[in-house]
Design a protein around this nucleic acid. Structure first.
Length: 279
DNA sequence: GGAGGGAACCACGATCCTGT
DNA sequence: ACAGGATCGTGGTTCCCTCC
């Protein structure tokens, strides 16, 4: 066993793990996009029929159509699962090419997007804007995260409740757990709510479940624990969603809602608050 | 090939810390 | 006491890998 190195020395010895990538370098992925786009340009007419034949013949290149309408590969997968119950575009392109293209057109204006973009002349600035895209998506992610939180906060405010957002509440044995909305004093909370909306998938959904399980574990029997869960991302993480639903089914949490059932959320919160003489 | 899961990414608000 | 930079914690999204 070697002796511990001084922390500052250790800090100084940390190095970069990844190398810088030349953005103009050719990659296999770039090649594929170039070729697929070329084949798109060879279409006699950019319409549903022509595109359906194109995806049938080029099932691997469906993501290029996604890119054309502003869908990243992951966004495309999640949208496909929402509509077709599978994220596998390859199979869809071969077995239901017309349905696939028709849906892309109805939902994302595929035909018009292709026609206008393929004839447009792009500038250097356009390239840089596209490269900066990840920042824009991160900003949107933050906004959509607050969407559900804002909705439930509006309800709490509207009901005239005293509440705290994005904090921790105390339950049994002085233990605490995080919550997105806490009604009452966080040290003796009456109602705690988790708000988890995801349109994409990832281990964050598992984190969200862990958080709700923690709430259920810490809660006092007298505390009302509710979860507002929405977003198509859960369709690709059903085992996680099931765990939350199971908590509800076994009464470890008291309610589970989507945005369209928020009226019930409101009614349930109002009823509990009246019973507790909070309003 | 497709499903599922884990880690990395960028942004933002709240809070901490520091120099004035 | 206070302004403002640094840091922390949390948000959803994207990428990548493994397993069937």
């Amino acid at each position: 066993m070697s002796t511990a190195v001084d922390f500052d020395d250790y800090l100084k010895s940390l190095g970069r793990l990844t190398s810088h990538v030349d953005p103009t370098a050719a990659t296999p992925e770039a090649e594929r996009i170039v070729e697929a786009t070329g084949r798109l340009g060879g279409l006699l007419d950019t319409d549903i029929t022509g595109l359906a034949a194109w995806v049938r013949d080029n099932p691997n290149d469906v993501p290029v159509l996604g890119l054309a309408v502003g869908l990243s590969q992951e966004k495309l997968k999640n949208a496909l699962r929402d509509r077709f119950d599978t994220s596998g575009w390859h199979g869809l392109a071969r077995t239901q090419p017309v349905e696939l293209v028709t849906w892309l057109d109805a939902e994302f204006d595929l035909v018009r997007m292709l026609r206008t973009q393929m004839e447009r002349t792009y500038t250097f600035a356009d390239i840089l804007v596209a490269r900066a895209g990840t920042r824009a998506t991160a900003t949107r992610a933050g906004a959509s995260g607050r969407r559900i939180e804002d909705e439930i906060e509006d309800i709490a405010r509207d009901l005239g409740l005293d509440y705290t957002t994005r904090s921790r509440f105390a339950g049994r044995n002085g233990r605490t757990a995080p919550a997105d909305l806490i009604v009452g004093d966080p040290n003796s909370a009456d109602i705690v709510v988790a708000a988890k909306g995801f349109d994409s998938t990832g281990s964050k959904l598992t984190d969200a479940v862990r958080e709700i399980e923690e709430m259920a574990e810490v809660r006092l029997p007298t505390q009302l624990v509710l979860a507002v869960i929405d977003g198509i991302g859960w369709k690709s993480r059903q085992s996680d969603l099931r765990r939350i639903h199971q908590l509800w089914a076994t009464r470890q949490i008291d309610g589970m809602y989507t945005l369209v059932t928020l009226d019930r959320f409101r009614a349930d919160v109002a009823e509990f608050a009246r019973l507790r003489r909070l309003i």
